[in-house]
Simulated assay, not measured.
Amino acid sequence: MSTDDLTFDPAELHAVSAKGDGVASHRLAVLTAMGLWVRQDWAEALRLLERAAAQGHEPAGDDRAALAALPDLGQWLTPPRPRALMAGPAILTVPDFLPPSVCDWLMDQAREETRPALVYDPATGDGLRNDIRTNSASQIGLERMTVTMALVRERIARIAGLPVPGLEWTQVLHYGVGQTFDWHVDWLNPDEPGYAADLASRGQRIATLLVYLNDDYEGGETAFEAGGLRHRGKKGDALMWANTLPQGGVDPRTRHAGLPPTAGEKWVLSQWLRGRAPTG
């Protein structure tokens, strides 16, 4: 059975999984890891992943192999403390946030699925192409979610102190030589009518977290106007910043850019975090 033939109904998935279908077992493992429509249970998610791999579902086997690089669950779900990079806007670094093998796995997951990256249209809230952003992106939505990715998202949420349901779908970004995401902010301007419905449903983008998935390139720093900061982490390091102020308003000091690589290619995981799950 193909993934396209399956729903996300847990009862149906359990029935199909019990008949030996690895696709259903893997999808059920992902839902259990994420706590979607079922109670979140990491032990059960890992058991279902083992079942899916034993049933011959190749993506489940790849998913299980990626997990082999992770430390024990308790250590993984207790991420290291971030370190502030500057006084002023809350911009922090987290060394060794992801193991190098997971970085490689994420790049492999994204490589075949990259598309031209989009920006929000402030008039409508829809995505559109714009010369401000010339890199490409691969979005990992529910159809492409894995147990490994669910664990990465859990770790991101825990280090940011924000709920997992408030995470937008994770993206893996690719920058070739000369490609950039020019100066911009990640928060949504509450004065723009095109953002009103999104903000009402999901709230503001409270924080952004990046993970540098490789470091064998030149240039490509993450630049902030505040303090003239230019930052480039090593493979597996995270960079995190708050898009909002403690009082709740947006922080204009977080204007930043993804500068272009001058040699090689840059891969980075990008995660926007909201304060709650979508409503309505």
Rank of each mutant, 00 (worst) to 15 (best):
Leu188Phe: 12
Ala238Cys: 05
Thr3Leu: 15
Ile132Thr: 14
Gly220Phe: 05
Thr262Arg: 15
Asp21Thr: 06
Tyr195Arg: 08
Thr78Ile: 03
Glu113Val: 10
Ile140Val: 15
Gly127Lys: 11
Arg27Ala: 07
Thr222Asp: 04
Asp5Val: 09
Ala68Thr: 14
Trp183Arg: 13
Ala87Asn: 14
Asp198Thr: 11
Arg158His: 09
Ala117Thr: 01
Phe97Pro: 02
Asp191Trp: 05
Trp105Thr: 12
Asp131Arg: 12
Gly178Arg: 09
His14Ser: 11
Tyr175Val: 05
Ala226Asn: 02
Ala52Gly: 00
Val177Met: 14
Ala223Met: 10
His57Met: 03
Val30Lys: 02
Lys234Leu: 09
Ala45Tyr: 04
Asp96Glu: 11
Val185Glu: 13
Ala257Gly: 02
Gly203Trp: 12
Leu142Tyr: 05
Pro190Leu: 02
Pro71Ala: 14
Ala29Lys: 00
Arg133Gln: 06
Glu154Gln: 13
Pro163Gly: 12
Ser201Gln: 13
Ala137Tyr: 07
Ala33Glu: 03
Arg232Tyr: 05
Gly141Leu: 03
Gly88Leu: 04
Arg115Pro: 01
Thr208Gln: 08
Ala137His: 13
Leu28Asn: 00
Asp215Glu: 11
Tyr217Asn: 01
Asp9Arg: 10
Ala263Trp: 08
Pro260Ser: 07
Arg202Leu: 00
Val268Ala: 15
Ala53Asp: 15
Ala223Asp: 13
Thr114Ser: 09
